[in-house]
Structure formats: C-alpha cells, structure tokens
Simulated assay, not measured.
Amino acid sequence: MNDIREFATLTSKGQITLPKAVRQVLGVDQGGKVRFEIRSGEVVVTRAEADHEDPAIGAFLDLIERDIRAGRHVGSLPDDVAAALLAEVKTPVDIDEDIEGDVAL
C-alpha cells in the first residue's frame, strides 16, 4: 500500500473531519469510532472497536442510543449522577455550548 498524506483543518471548537482516504483505510463510516493515541510525539489514529471496555457502560450507552433512535425523550439525570459523570471528564465541558455541524448516532 502506498503512503497516504492528508490534511484536515481544525475548527474553533477543536473538531476535524477525517479525510475520505483516511476513513476508507480505517474502514469507518458515519457513526464509526476512532481512537487517538500519542506515541513519542506522534498521533496514531486507529479504528475503535464497537464494544465498550466496560459491559455495564456499553449496555447503558446502547439503551440511551435505542431511546434516542426511537424518538423517546431522555430525561435529566439526577444531580449527583450528572456531577459524578462530569467529574470523570478530562476536559472542560460546557453543556450549554451549541453543537456545530451534523450529529450522527
């Protein structure tokens, strides 16, 4: 396989679009997951496996996805649960921030 060199532009919200050639090589499409690893100053992008490492979290995420796809409203989490989840986030989160671009589930 020939080496592929592609470029992407970072948006003001830190987002990029993976170039088509990269998506094809990784075998990911809309809704696909990728993993970023930093190795000796280089970023390595690989296709992420569909299953979550923790089966309980994976099942919970699957339940939420089914509800969203079925058009059911996902209610608010109890404050203590929301706080515990946000405490696990490694980057600041602004839940009132507008989502830019298309969202795929």
Rank of each mutant, 00 (worst) to 15 (best):
E49G: 15
F36V: 04
L61S: 01
G58L: 09
G32D: 11
Q24Y: 02
R5T: 12
N2Q: 11
T11V: 09
A83G: 07
K20M: 02
D79K: 11
A87H: 04
A59R: 13
E6N: 01
D79C: 00
L10R: 12
V81G: 00
G101D: 05
T9V: 12
V44D: 01
L86E: 09
L86I: 02
A48M: 09
D29C: 03
L63I: 06
A50D: 10
D29P: 00
G41Q: 00
D67C: 13
R23M: 10
A82Q: 13
R5H: 11
R66G: 01
E42F: 01
G58N: 10
I68Q: 01
F60H: 10
A59K: 13
V81Y: 04
V103M: 07
E53I: 08
T91G: 04
F60C: 09
Q30L: 11
K33M: 13
E100K: 10
R72E: 03
A21I: 09
D98R: 14
D62S: 12
A87N: 09
A104Q: 11
S76W: 07
V74D: 01
A48K: 07
I68R: 15
I16H: 10
D29R: 14
G32C: 05
L105M: 07
F36L: 15
E88C: 09
D62I: 00
A21L: 03
A82G: 06
L26H: 02
A8K: 04
G41N: 01
D98H: 14
L86H: 11
L10G: 09
K13N: 10
T9L: 05
V74W: 08
G58F: 02
V28A: 11
E6D: 05
P55I: 02
V43D: 07
D51T: 12
Q24W: 02
D54R: 05
L10P: 00
V89R: 12
D98G: 14
R5L: 13
G41K: 00
D98Q: 14
K33I: 14
K33H: 09
